[in-house]
Simulated assay, not measured.
Amino acid sequence: MLFEKNSRIVFAGDSVTDVGRDYHAIPAGWGSFGDGYVSQINSLLTAVYPDKEIMVVNKGVSGDNIALMANRWDNDVLAMEPDYVSIMIGVNDVWRFFDAPFQQLQAPNIVSQDLYEKTYRELIAKTQPSVKQMMIMSPFMIEPNRQDPMRHMVDAYRRIAERLARENHLIYVDVQAAVDHFLTQQSSYILTSDRVHPNVQGHMLVARTWLQTLGFDWERSTFDDH
């Protein structure tokens, strides 16, 4: 697996990353992980790689789009002095086009594809020199119909994230591909009630995809000091 002993991983994103974390908790302490994929990843890293003593920090904030996340980046992410940063952002950037047409005051929070790409590029350029690696997780929607207007737009933002990951030699975690694979067998209602926020099973799918991409050894039975 990629991570060295005492690695520090910061996860940044929106509500799919946040999932009820305690904002006042000590980083990597009780209540700090939330109830989603970040907590599941932390639990599996702790259980299978106890000798690595990996620190997982959840800095997801519900409601964030990429512009809001960028505003808090220095204090919430870089201040943690991470070795690795994992980002999943974009679904709210899309969702506001669909759920806020009657909320004129939301207009400044509308993030175009051009602004999404520009802001993402700036975050990568700011972060990459000070970390060992970054992981770009695809924004995703738990919707099998790729012609659905919102799913179609999520795919456009997802392609931007993937392209930026490839251009900057970052690790790309294709969550949407894993979701689409699942949806060939089961309904979206098994993973979500609103096509955006995963339930426990949905978060496990996200966690498993991230861990597999990072080379997690599910059969590991010996430690590095033995």
Results as ranks from 00 to 15, higher is better:
Val61Ala: 04
Asn145Gln: 12
Gly34Val: 11
Asp155Trp: 00
Ala177Arg: 14
Leu183Met: 02
Tyr120Glu: 05
Pro108Trp: 08
Gln133Asn: 11
Glu143Lys: 02
Ala107Gln: 13
Ser188Ala: 14
Gln103Lys: 14
Phe140Val: 12
Asp180Leu: 02
Asn109Val: 02
Arg72His: 12
Ser7Arg: 04
Tyr37Thr: 10
Phe98Asn: 00
Asn65Glu: 07
Tyr120Lys: 07
His24Phe: 11
Tyr116Thr: 10
Leu68His: 10
Trp73Val: 04
Gly90Tyr: 12
Ser193Gly: 06
Phe102Pro: 00
Met1Gly: 14
Leu2Phe: 05
Val196His: 08
Ser130Asp: 07
Leu183Cys: 01
Val91Ser: 09
Glu122Pro: 01
Glu53Gly: 04
Leu183Ile: 03
Phe140Ala: 10
Ala47Gly: 08
Thr127Ile: 04
Asn168Arg: 00
Ser130Val: 12
Ile9Ser: 03
Val56Asn: 05
Asp99Asn: 15
Ala28Lys: 00
Asp180Glu: 11
Asp224Thr: 11
Asp174Ile: 09
Ala165Gln: 05
Gln133Lys: 13
Met141Asp: 04
Lys59His: 14
Asp93Ser: 09
Pro149Val: 00
Ser32Gly: 04
Asp18Leu: 05
Val131Thr: 07
Ala70His: 11
Arg195Leu: 06
Leu123Val: 02
Lys52Glu: 09
Pro198Leu: 11
His197Ser: 07
Val196Asn: 06
Lys118Gln: 00
Arg159Tyr: 06
His152Pro: 01
His152Phe: 05
Asn6Cys: 01
